[in-house]
Amino acid sequence: DETGKFLVLSLYDYQEKSPREVTMKKGDILTLLNSTNKDWWKVEVNGRQGFVPAAYVKFL
């Protein structure tokens, strides 16, 4: 199980638009929880879990 094993870097600021999403700032290091959807990845940032656009992050 690779859940929570990968870190990704936020390339852009992102403001959550729904309760299922999370806000991140450019340069944030996020824990990747799920990347099965090619468009939206589930991450943990600042103690919160939610989705961010996959195009806004990259693997470290």
Score class of each variant (00 low, 15 high):
residue 29 I to M: 07
residue 10 S to Y: 06
residue 49 Q to Y: 08
residue 24 M to K: 00
residue 14 Y to K: 01
residue 33 L to K: 04
residue 4 G to M: 13
residue 29 I to D: 00
residue 56 Y to W: 06
residue 42 K to E: 15
residue 15 Q to S: 11
residue 22 V to Y: 02
residue 39 D to M: 13
residue 16 E to Q: 13
residue 36 T to P: 03
residue 2 E to D: 13
residue 26 K to G: 04
residue 46 N to L: 08
residue 11 L to H: 03
residue 19 P to T: 10
residue 33 L to E: 01
residue 10 S to E: 01
residue 12 Y to R: 13
residue 27 G to F: 04
residue 16 E to V: 05
residue 24 M to N: 00
residue 39 D to G: 09
residue 48 R to T: 07
residue 23 T to W: 04
residue 23 T to K: 03
residue 17 K to D: 06
residue 48 R to S: 06
residue 20 R to M: 13
residue 3 T to N: 13
residue 28 D to E: 12
residue 40 W to A: 01
residue 38 K to W: 07
residue 36 T to E: 14
residue 9 L to S: 04
residue 14 Y to V: 02
residue 57 V to N: 00
residue 43 V to T: 00
residue 49 Q to N: 07
residue 53 P to V: 05
residue 8 V to G: 08
residue 38 K to L: 09
residue 33 L to C: 07
residue 21 E to V: 05
residue 9 L to E: 11
residue 50 G to E: 01
residue 18 S to V: 04
residue 36 T to I: 09
residue 55 A to M: 12
residue 23 T to R: 05
residue 43 V to N: 00
residue 45 V to Y: 09
residue 25 K to A: 08
residue 45 V to E: 01
residue 57 V to G: 00
residue 56 Y to F: 13
residue 45 V to C: 09
residue 15 Q to N: 13
residue 8 V to H: 03
residue 3 T to L: 13
residue 52 V to K: 00
residue 48 R to W: 04
residue 48 R to E: 05
residue 3 T to G: 13
residue 41 W to Q: 00
residue 20 R to K: 12
residue 17 K to F: 04
residue 10 S to T: 08
residue 2 E to P: 14
residue 22 V to T: 05
residue 24 M to E: 00
residue 20 R to S: 13
residue 58 K to I: 15
residue 5 K to H: 13
residue 16 E to S: 15
residue 47 G to C: 06
residue 33 L to T: 04
residue 52 V to T: 01
residue 4 G to S: 13
residue 36 T to S: 14
residue 22 V to A: 05
residue 12 Y to H: 14
residue 36 T to F: 10
residue 45 V to F: 14
residue 33 L to N: 01
residue 12 Y to V: 13
residue 59 F to M: 15
residue 42 K to D: 03
residue 46 N to K: 09
residue 12 Y to E: 11
residue 2 E to H: 15
residue 30 L to W: 02
residue 43 V to Q: 00
residue 7 L to I: 09
residue 37 N to Y: 08
residue 27 G to A: 02
residue 22 V to S: 01
residue 29 I to V: 12
residue 57 V to D: 00
residue 36 T to W: 10
residue 37 N to C: 10
residue 7 L to S: 07
residue 48 R to D: 03
residue 58 K to F: 10
residue 52 V to F: 02
residue 41 W to C: 04
residue 11 L to D: 03
residue 44 E to M: 09
residue 9 L to A: 05
residue 33 L to I: 15
residue 48 R to K: 11
residue 42 K to F: 15
residue 4 G to L: 13
residue 43 V to I: 08
residue 17 K to L: 09
residue 13 D to H: 05
residue 41 W to D: 00
residue 59 F to N: 07
residue 39 D to R: 13
residue 50 G to V: 03
residue 8 V to N: 01
residue 50 G to K: 01
residue 33 L to M: 07
residue 20 R to I: 12
residue 43 V to M: 01
residue 36 T to C: 15
residue 8 V to M: 09
residue 10 S to I: 07
residue 1 D to G: 14
residue 33 L to F: 03
residue 48 R to Q: 08
residue 18 S to E: 09
residue 13 D to F: 05
residue 55 A to V: 10
residue 58 K to W: 09
residue 6 F to V: 15
residue 28 D to I: 05
residue 27 G to M: 02
residue 41 W to I: 08
residue 6 F to L: 14
residue 21 E to F: 07
residue 8 V to W: 07
residue 5 K to D: 08
residue 27 G to S: 03
residue 8 V to F: 07
residue 48 R to L: 07
residue 37 N to P: 03
residue 12 Y to W: 10
residue 7 L to N: 06
residue 54 A to Y: 03
residue 24 M to G: 00
residue 6 F to H: 13
residue 1 D to P: 14
residue 7 L to A: 06
residue 16 E to L: 08
residue 32 L to C: 09
residue 34 N to L: 08
residue 6 F to A: 12
residue 35 S to L: 08
residue 59 F to W: 09
residue 29 I to Q: 05
residue 17 K to N: 10
residue 10 S to N: 02
residue 1 D to Y: 13
residue 58 K to C: 15
residue 11 L to W: 05
residue 49 Q to C: 10
residue 12 Y to F: 13
residue 21 E to H: 06
residue 58 K to V: 15
residue 40 W to N: 01
residue 41 W to F: 09
residue 32 L to D: 00
residue 37 N to E: 10
residue 20 R to A: 12
residue 55 A to S: 14
residue 34 N to S: 13
residue 35 S to E: 06
residue 7 L to C: 12
residue 47 G to I: 02
residue 23 T to I: 04
residue 35 S to W: 15
residue 38 K to A: 12
residue 19 P to W: 12
residue 16 E to F: 06
residue 53 P to H: 03
residue 59 F to R: 11
residue 53 P to T: 03
residue 5 K to V: 13
residue 18 S to I: 04
residue 50 G to A: 02
residue 7 L to Y: 15
residue 17 K to T: 12
residue 26 K to H: 06
residue 6 F to P: 12
residue 42 K to A: 08
residue 16 E to W: 06
residue 53 P to L: 05
residue 32 L to W: 03
residue 17 K to S: 11
residue 51 F to K: 02
residue 31 T to M: 12
residue 30 L to A: 08
residue 59 F to P: 13
residue 9 L to H: 04
residue 30 L to R: 00
residue 30 L to G: 08
residue 58 K to P: 01
residue 11 L to S: 03
residue 35 S to M: 15
residue 14 Y to M: 02
residue 27 G to P: 01
residue 51 F to G: 01
residue 33 L to V: 11
residue 24 M to P: 00
residue 20 R to C: 15
residue 44 E to R: 07
residue 25 K to I: 07
residue 12 Y to N: 10
residue 14 Y to S: 02
residue 21 E to T: 09
residue 38 K to H: 11
residue 5 K to N: 11
residue 8 V to K: 01
residue 55 A to W: 07
residue 49 Q to P: 05
residue 9 L to T: 08
residue 29 I to G: 00
residue 38 K to S: 12
residue 52 V to D: 00
residue 35 S to C: 15
residue 40 W to M: 06
residue 45 V to Q: 08
residue 35 S to R: 13
residue 57 V to M: 06
residue 13 D to W: 04
residue 42 K to Q: 12
residue 60 L to V: 11
residue 57 V to H: 00
residue 32 L to R: 01
residue 5 K to T: 12
residue 32 L to V: 12
residue 48 R to V: 09
residue 17 K to Q: 14
residue 52 V to S: 01
residue 43 V to E: 00
residue 11 L to I: 11
residue 40 W to R: 01
residue 18 S to W: 06
residue 32 L to E: 00
residue 48 R to Y: 06
residue 25 K to M: 09
residue 36 T to L: 09
residue 29 I to E: 03
residue 18 S to G: 13
residue 6 F to E: 09
residue 30 L to H: 02
residue 52 V to N: 00
residue 43 V to F: 01
residue 28 D to M: 14
residue 39 D to P: 02
residue 22 V to R: 01
residue 22 V to W: 03
residue 20 R to T: 12
residue 60 L to N: 05
residue 57 V to F: 05
residue 2 E to Y: 10
residue 43 V to Y: 00
residue 11 L to M: 10
residue 51 F to R: 02
residue 31 T to R: 13
residue 13 D to R: 02
residue 44 E to P: 00
residue 5 K to Q: 12
residue 15 Q to T: 14
residue 60 L to P: 04
residue 59 F to Q: 10
residue 39 D to E: 12
residue 16 E to P: 15
